[in-house]
């Protein structure tokens, strides 16, 4: 694990050094973005909506029981923007996109495609890693911003329709606007950017170090998803701590 972290930092550094090539590789980045969007937009919608819904369902009745109707929108909106949307989407994307990246690069490794690239003086970090890390770092923050909106909508829907809450959508958003600031949304989006870098690097790294045939690919994919999720949760704490004034 510790050796992994060293290698990850090194890969991060190499990816940073490869960033000036991003414009040249824009076609690949665009393809990756397209794939990420296609693969995850619907799921982000569903997940976002139901996260909002369940938070409203859990907290709404408790607040309303104590006469705190006007806190429902703020409570739901705040927790989705700062915490739930970035973390849950990070986990979703680690499972949906990170795993696919590891599998693809891992199979390229096992079937000597990466060796073939190296014999053509094509650097795997420039050709494979950098475009993927850039694409996911662009896509995830956008998906999270979108998920926050959908989550609020889900919360508002449940708040308005659930018989134990009955806070109108108008009141919900009014309250949300009183509590949630733009800074909170930015907080969530910035976090998700960090998560995206983590997912992309972990996925590519696990792919590149894959050994031993199809079974090795399976092992790498599992590790990629598990390590990404663990790092997301750890970094979630660290970043929140740093961003707290």
């Amino acid at each position: 694990m510790f050796q992994n972290i060293g290698e990850l930092v090194l890969l991060f550094w190499r990816t940073l050094l490869a960033l000036p090539l991003a414009w040249r590789q824009r076609q690949k980045i665009y393809e990756q973005l397209h794939e990420i969007g296609n693969a995850s937009l619907l799921m982000v919608c569903m997940l976002g909506f139901f996260i909002g819904a369940v938070i409203a369902l859990q907290t709404g009745p408790v607040l309303v029981e104590r006469g705190l109707h006007s806190y429902v929108g703020g409570m739901v909106g705040y927790s989705i923007a700062r915490e739930l949307a970035p973390v849950m989407m990070g986990v979703l994307i680690a499972g949906r996109i990170g795993s696919a990246m590891t599998a693809e690069i891992g199979s390229m490794r096992v079937y000597q495609e990466i060796d073939a690239l190296r014999t053509m003086n094509i650097h795997p970090v420039h050709f494979l890693v950098m475009p993927r890390v850039v694409a996911i770092s662009v896509a995830l923050p956008m998906l999270v911003a979108f998920a926050i909106l959908v989550g609020w909508l889900g919360g508002a829907t449940i708040a308005a329709t659930n018989q134990h809450i009955q806070v109108s959508a108008k009141a919900f958003f009014q309250d949300l606007r009183n509590v949630v600031e733009l800074a909170d949304v930015i907080h969530g989006v910035v976090k998700s950017f960090c998560f995206a870098v983590i997912i992309g690097l972990v996925a590519c790294h696990q792919g590149l170090v894959t050994r031993g045939g199809p079974r090795g690919i399976g092992r790498s994919v599992t590790k990629s998803v598990v390590n990404s999720i663990v790092l997301i949760v750890v970094f979630d704490y660290l970043i929140t701590r740093v961003l707290q004034k």
């Binding site: 079937y111 000597q112 495609e113 060796d115 073939a116 014999t119 053509m120």
Partner: peptide, 16 residues
């Protein structure tokens, strides 16, 4: 960089 070498792999190793 100075001398370009190429290799034809046993499996071909085309990018799938």
């Amino acid at each position: 960089d100075e001398h370009h070498l190429a290799m034809v792999f046993q499996s071909g190793a085309l990018l799938n």
